[in-house]
Design a protein around this nucleic acid. Sequence first.
DNA 1: CTGTACTTCCT
DNA 2: GGAAGTACA
Length: 698
Amino acid sequence: MSGGGCSIVWFRRDLRVEDNPALAAGVRAGAVIAVFIWAPEEEGHYYPGRVSRWWLKQSLAHLDSSLKSLGTTLVTKRSTDSVSSLIEIVKSTGATQLFFNHLYDPISLVRDHRAKELLTDYGIAVRSFNADLLYEPWEVNDDQGRPFITFSDFWDKCLSMPYDPAAPMLPPKRITSGDVSRCPSDVLVFEDESEKGSNALLARAWSPGWSNADKALTTFINGPLIEYSVNRRKADSATTSFLSPHLHFGEVSVRKVFHLVRIKQVVWGNEGNTAGEESVNLFLKSIGLREYSRYLSFNHPYSHERPLLGHLKFFPWVVDEGYFKAWRQGRTGYPLVDAGMRELWATGWLHDRIRVVVSSFFVKVLQLPWRWGMKYFWDTLLDADLESDALGWQYISGTLPDGREFDRIDNPQQLEGYKFDPNGEYVRRWLPELARLPTEWVHHPWNTPESVLQAAGVELGSNYPLPIVEIDAAKARLQEALSEMWQQEAAWRAAIENGTDEGLGESMESAPIAFPRDIQMEIDPEPARNNNAPATMVRHHGDQRVPSMTSSFLRVEEEEPSVDLRNSAEDSRAEVPTNMNLGQEPRREESNQGGLQTVRNNNNLRQFDTFGLQNTDYSTAESSSSTRERDGGVVPVWSPAASSFSEQLVGEENSLGSGSSYLQRHPQSHQIINWRRLSQTGARSWEMENTVEPNAIG
DNA sequence: CTGTACTTCCT
DNA sequence: GGAAGTACA
């Protein structure tokens, strides 16, 4: 096809040969050059952590061996600029086409757009595909064609779309290899000497690689899935799917997961197995959250570093590295939290429930800035995933429209972990110093009788800490912090109205809470795990300001773009994109909603009506055309204004004019994205459609 | 069977 | 905090 040149299939987080649309397209087009480019510097702060790099290394080796058995090989390149490397590969191989699968994190959106532009200019036919999601983010909209702002609405829609997700494709039977004789692979280094020892242990517990992922999926669906709803609340149960690292690297297709799970659902539905059906719904929901994380990232590319809602803009986060360190080391004095943090450090894994516990503790009790916790998760989790983790932390922090109240420490008794760890086995496993405490006391040593402690060999404050913060103190401090936040907010508004402080919004925007320097390097309680970061890692933290140790209540804002609150939204709201979906060709298969729950929840927006702002001028939001004529069709174009639906929200909610207005509760919600920084990267509009033909651009 | 107090979970 | 479920009069 296309003149007979070979195609580059650019692998990224789609390390599988099965149900890989980019690979399938390459195979269909003729000879294939399979490429992986390792350019971690492109990730900025989010240089992958040790365990994540370990996984990637294994997964790539696995993919390479699969490709070899199919007739080709994986070309690997070390790079600081993926797009330049692609052009080099084009030059050295004579490839005429490039295929890849979509990613939705902000860095990839920019980079992939640039890849498309530059390579198209170079005369290369570029096509990209959906391999990571059931539906592309722009396919899932409400009745007015606007993106959803709550998960439940989003997920209800996904489960009731008029067409099913694409059916998974089989792996190619054979791949014709392109000529790579003049395109040598670089040896990719994913771990340094100091990391090898720790990494060796990982191989005992995990088997990266797409066919292992497939086995894990089958095992889960035929086994633990049916018990999922019952067992999911046990901290150390082996009944989670353990698919998340596989899914992160795209070793298994989420569409295959979805299809196989729905088959089970139909079977169990016919059998009247309600427990099984409930399990399926819950498990699919966790798949849905992963979908939603991409959806949010696509619609709000800064959701990994900025709260989606602005109402915590003035919250005085506790910038205290001592707290942060205690949390990381599992020395907070709360056994369940500490057990979780030690498990995370030791294994790179944490049960979802425990993730909620430790992150909720981090935000609500310690009141540390959530981005620190998110960064630590990024550095340590085997399944570290920017979009999913951003969603999780924003949810915990109460900065999502459908999240929880911020001003409550929910279920403080869950910190006495009898719900997730009723017999204390989990705590005893990870906190040997508490192993001899009776179950009755193992979750709350702080009020355990002295005689019991002595008998168990526990000396509080010595071999196990007293609670770093008492729950009651944390509640009180939370209230103080909130009133301080409201004062700051009021002062800020007053200053703006007086015109005396125009610069504040700007300065806040440019002063996010810096990560503490080198957080990976000082964590380790055990020298054997010392994580001597390679030079590249250090560099990413080198330019960070270190938070002051002396001012634990230093007020540091989560940044927001400057918002001029004086003008009414109706006067100046941006043009509303209307036809994002026109170019889509919905698949025509008959929709099968067999038994899937489509109960519609109420939106249940939170009552955070503290600012009382109603007139908000989102003048910083740029307007941009959301569609482009192309090949006789209109295709959706990712562009800042098109994906930022703040202006639509303003329009709709203000026109409702009711006391339950969304924006009355969340006056600055969804005004979160500083598009200037995006445009600095050179992206004005990013094609995400999958049918760009050569020379169609420009 | 309906009303109501109580519990659980919430992305 | 509130919806949705549960137990019981």
